[in-house]
């Protein structure tokens, strides 16, 4: 096995640093990352609630995740680990969110729908990093040095609240997309699709079809 390229990024990430990221590179992060997923997007974008904190200059990294965390009696938090959740579900909010917050790195599970890289992320100078596995919750938990803040905890619950984590050597992540809109998931998906026809060859279709069913093997469920 050849060695995969590894880089360490200080956050907030600069435009120059982001421009150098290539799909397939392994990344570790130092600085502040924040979590936001459907609960937060709904509040800020759909309900137009103001952001609870100015992210500009603090963090430009949105992690689609929730922590395994609990509140201690003294009000501090015990964060065991963090694991990403599938990002494609948040596609409809991404354009507005990137514009509103200046976020330039999106981290999550499984990447975005193919068109989003070219139409939303790349034009905004943003890239997508994917978590590994998925589920390196313990390794990522080690990288969190402090809970800097948490917002809407009572309203949204631990899983949906907006968390700000101070992180050190936080990773590993894999670069999925670059500023040209290329995506690792897309290129690997294309390669795998080429072999799928042979796999199904000779297997006759079932008698009862499902409404809306397709035999296009290039389709995705997202």
């Amino acid at each position: 096995m050849s060695e995969l390229k590894q880089v360490r990024l200080s956050l907030p990430a600069t435009a120059e640093d982001i421009a150098t990221l290539e799909p397939g590179t392994i990344v570790f992060l130092d600085g502040v990352v924040y979590t936001a997923r459907e609960g937060v997007y709904q509040k800020v974008i759909a309900e137009r609630k103001p952001l609870p904190i100015k992210l500009d200059g603090l963090s430009n990294v949105n992690f689609h995740c929730s922590p395994a965390a609990s509140r201690n009696d003294d009000g501090s938090f015990n964060v065991g680990g963090v694991t990403a959740t599938a990002s494609f579900r948040f596609s409809k909010w991404m354009q507005d969110w990137l514009e509103l917050t200046g976020t330039r790195i999106v981290i999550g599970k499984g990447g975005m729908p193919r068109d989003d890289y070219k139409n939303i992320l790349a034009p905004m100078g943003a890239v997508y990093l994917t978590t590994v596995g998925y589920g390196t919750g313990a390794l990522l938990g080690r990288g969190i040095t402090k809970v800097r803040d948490v917002f809407w905890l009572d309203e949204l619950g631990i899983a949906q609240a907006m968390w700000l984590f101070e992180v050190e050597n936080f990773g590993p992540f894999i670069v999925d997309s670059d500023l040209k809109g290329n995506s690792l998931f897309a290129t690997h998906g294309d390669q795998i699709n080429k072999g799928l026809g042979a796999l199904y060859k000779g297997l006759k279709a079932p008698a009862l079809r499902r409404y809306g069913e397709t035999d296009n093997r290039e389709d995705e469920v997202l």
């Binding site: 050849s2 392994i26 395994a68 065991g80 680990g81 596995g133 589920g135 313990a138 390794l139 938990g141």
Partner: peptide, 30 residues
Amino acid sequence: TQDLSSFVLKTMLDNWEAASGDRRPMCADT
């Protein structure tokens, strides 16, 4: 034989070691 797939599997082995060593959940999605 594939670099990325192999990297992912090795990272998972590391993750389980970290989880057991630190007594923290291996995956935060319960």
